[in-house]
């Protein structure tokens, strides 16, 4: 009985991931021991840098700048990609029109379009938001279409046998049935947005986490860049967890897992 409990505790510790992190930081510290701070800052140097950028307000301002852009770009992508996806999935003729373009365009990464977007939308926020919109748009669109197309046919038939017309079937069967796929698209869209905002800020400059990482590196403040990178990882992780938690809570009965 006692041994069983023991293995239970060991298993718990292993599963919560703390061991993995201890190993990671130890390896990092050992590696950093051999190099100077500019080449590879140690965990402690990174921690100090993190405290510094937090206390002087740089990090906070950059996080807000980046999150603001993600919010705008991702939000716009949700607002446009879901309705377009629903219509594209539902109407065969729209699908035939959209799909060929979609299958090609979605393989053009947003980063490849950065300089074009700069010309079209200018150097300010607009081009960055547009890039994020572009990056988040396709995962949401593709998944929304998939959701509509994979709607259980018998649900549609059941609704029409109970007298529901086409419009009612669309809103009461097809849209709710697509929710799990749409949600997956929205989640993927969020991670695309985060990747894209960093790339855009690094290339275009101004402010934001991407700019922080890029400029710190240019001024040989590698530990600051590391602080930015760690923040980025945390933001991505927290955002995704938060989103899936909200999804599970609110959309459980739509089949979101």
């Amino acid at each position: 009985m006692a041994t069983k409990e023991k293995t239970g505790i060991v298993e718990k510790i292993l599963r919560c991931g703390i061991i993995s992190w201890i190993i990671f930081f130890t390896l990092w510290a050992f590696a950093a021991f051999n190099y100077d701070e500019i080449f590879l800052p140690s965990p402690i140097e990174t921690w100090k840098a993190l405290v510094k950028v937090i206390s002087d307000g740089t990090l906070g301002a950059d996080i807000i700048a980046s999150l603001g852009r993600i919010g705008k770009g991702w939000g716009l992508a949700i607002l446009t990609a879901i309705p377009i996806g629903l219509l594209t999935g539902h109407f065969k003729c729209v699908r035939w029109l959209v799909e060929p373009l979609l299958n090609l365009l979605r393989f053009i990464p947003a980063i490849a379009l950065t300089s074009m977007f700069l010309i079209w939308f200018g150097v300010d926020d607009k081009s960055k938001v547009a890039l994020i919109l572009y990056a988040a748009f396709f995962p949401i669109l593709v998944n929304t279409i998939a959701g509509v197309v994979t709607t259980d046919k018998s649900l549609v038939e059941a609704a029409s046998c109970m007298g529901a017309g086409r419009i009612r079937v669309f809103f009461t069967v097809i849209v709710p049935s697509s929710v799990p796929n749409i949600f997956t698209g929205v989640r993927l869209g969020l991670s695309s947005s985060i990747i894209c905002v960093i790339a855009a800020e690094m290339l275009v400059g101004g402010d934001g986490l991407g700019y922080l990482i890029q400029s710190s590196r240019m001024y040989y403040k590698t530990s600051w860049a590391f602080a930015g990178i760690i923040t980025l990882a945390l933001i991505g992780f927290i955002a995704d967890r938060l989103l899936s938690f909200v999804g599970k809570k609110l959309l459980k009965h739509f089949g979101v897992k």
Binding site: S154, L155, E157, A158, C161, T172, P176, H253, F254
Partner: peptide
């Protein structure tokens, strides 16, 4: 007549209940 106009009740083999309702 479309199914919605026939006034027929249909019970499906896989039940086809709306899972979100």
């Amino acid at each position: 007549l479309s199914p919605s106009q026939r006034g027929v009740g249909f019970v499906f083999q896989n039940y086809a209940l709306f899972p979100y309702l």
